Computed example of a mutant assay.
Amino acid sequence: MFPHLTALGIQDPQQIERYSLRQEAHKDVLKVYFLKQKGELFAKSVKFKFPRQIKNVLVDGGSNQYREITEISRSLTLIIDELNKITKPEQLSDADIKQKILADLSHLENVVSNKIAEIEADLEKLK
């Protein structure tokens, strides 16, 4: 019934509670969260990374200038369609969208600061 999700290795798609999707560099990161099982402290989740499709788009026909753009891969759109059938996501209000953007920014800040600390630690080792 959900061939794209089972192709990812998800054995029981009906156990999916929600998902999140974000973009990192030239990849889309899909995180699928499952229903919390009895006795588990945290719900199980799995993460998948999909490379973005790169396309050259004509910017100005007169000068033959092209610009490289990236977009979500077709396989990921099919997976998201299946996830939407399972999770039936609700439409977000503007306030919810703002909160999501702020959460994404906070996550990005954490990722960048952790990476900077890692690089600085590597530099210290070289001294």
Rank of each mutant, 00 (worst) to 15 (best):
F2T: 05
F2A: 04
I10L: 05
Q11N: 13
D12T: 14
D12K: 15
P13F: 07
P13T: 04
Q14H: 10
Q14R: 08
R18N: 14
R18A: 13
S20H: 08
L21V: 04
R22F: 12
E24R: 07
E24Y: 05
A25K: 10
K27H: 10
V29A: 00
L30V: 01
V32K: 00
V32H: 01
F34W: 01
K36S: 04
K36R: 09
K44P: 05
V46E: 09
K47D: 01
K47C: 03
K49P: 01
F50E: 02
R52A: 03
Q53K: 12
N56Q: 14
V59G: 03
D60H: 03
G61Y: 09
G61C: 07
Q65F: 11
R67G: 10
I69P: 04
I69M: 08
T70F: 06
R74G: 05
R74I: 10
L76E: 06
T77P: 02
L78Q: 12
L78W: 09
L78V: 03
E82M: 07
E82Q: 09
T87C: 09
T87N: 05
P89H: 02
E90M: 13
Q91N: 11
S93V: 01
S93I: 02
D94L: 15
D96E: 15
K100G: 08
I101T: 14
D104M: 15
S106L: 15
S113I: 13
S113L: 11
N114R: 12
A117W: 06
E118A: 11
I119M: 08
I119P: 04
A121W: 03
L123Y: 08
L126E: 03
